[in-house]
Simulated assay, not measured.
Amino acid sequence: MAVLATGTAPGLRIPRSLGTGLMVVPAVAFLVLFMVVPLVSFLVRSVTGDDGGFTWQYYAEIFTTANYRSALINSLLLAIGSTLITIVITVPAALHLARIDGKRAIGYDAVLTFPLSLPGLVIGFFVIILFGRAGLAQSASTALTGHPSFVLAYSMPGLLLAYLYFQLPRTLGILRGAAAALDPDAESVARTLGASPARITATVVLPALWPAILSAAGIAIASSLGAYGTVAALSEGFRVLPLEIAEQGTVLQNTALAGAMAIVLAVLSAVFTVINHLGERMIERSAVRA
């Protein structure tokens, strides 16, 4: 069906499909220029040897060289571990927030979404201020016991804390919407039948929230894998793949190895993004059935 486009000469008709197609051109052009082109360039460099021929040597290095393999494993452990902790924290928080409204809800929203406005580097320095060598935890421990406490900031626990900081609002937003859509009658029926709160949570609430949990976990892991600023602020010998990519690509000028690492990281992020989409599809199907 043809429609008259706004601002065109009288009698000039533009197909609706063409008009709506033109609206997405800027977004597609941006993604092609700043995502597809660099990824293709990385891919070509990562499979091109010194002699110009095809090679898998740079990918082999990632999995056979101890430092690079350790950085890859650390990235996965940080992303998955922090996500699991975040889910445990945010599920009960989402259930509570779904049941309140008014000024309290606005206040919670303001506090819980604030980390989204902060860059990763700033979050890293927050952890240093709290748990660094001259941090508040050290000062408090020295004042109370006469001995400094264990320094968390530059280790795996410190990085987990930092990752939690920027994962919480992202995860909570997804889970809160799903918690608000839960059927209260299902819980009431289970309670009437004598089910305990723990059993209601395990057999009614969590299965209903499972698609949202899957979606939130996928997007949290995918975004955490590429975190750079936070790790750059806190890393002292603790390596993750984004740090290795930056060092190989900028300091050592080994763009082929950096490209291979970037492709591996992109593939891993894509896998968890697909998990996020699966969760979203499950949520949509549940909404349709309801």
Rank of each mutant, 00 (worst) to 15 (best):
L268Y: 06
P38T: 10
R285G: 14
Y165Q: 07
A220P: 04
R199F: 04
H277M: 10
L130A: 14
A137S: 14
S149I: 01
K103E: 06
L234F: 05
G52F: 11
L209P: 06
L160Y: 09
D109P: 05
Q167P: 11
F150T: 14
I73H: 00
V122E: 00
S224R: 09
E244S: 12
G21D: 01
N254F: 08
T171K: 10
L209H: 02
M156Q: 09
N254S: 06
T65D: 07
F114K: 13
L278T: 06
G11D: 05
Y68S: 04
P119V: 03
I100E: 09
D185W: 08
G259C: 08
V47K: 02
G102C: 08
V205K: 08
F63T: 10
I221K: 09
A260S: 13
G107V: 11
G177C: 03
G146C: 12
I100D: 10
I275E: 03
L136F: 10
L193M: 14
P15S: 13
Y59I: 09
V251P: 04
F114H: 11
S70N: 08
I100S: 07
G194F: 12
T203W: 04
L241R: 02
A137I: 02
R45L: 14
F150I: 09
T203N: 04
S75D: 03
G249Y: 13
I245D: 00
I275S: 12
L43Y: 06
A190E: 11
L4M: 15
A105P: 01
A262D: 05
A179E: 07
Y154H: 11
P197Y: 01
S155A: 11
T113G: 02
Y59L: 12
A198E: 08
V240K: 04
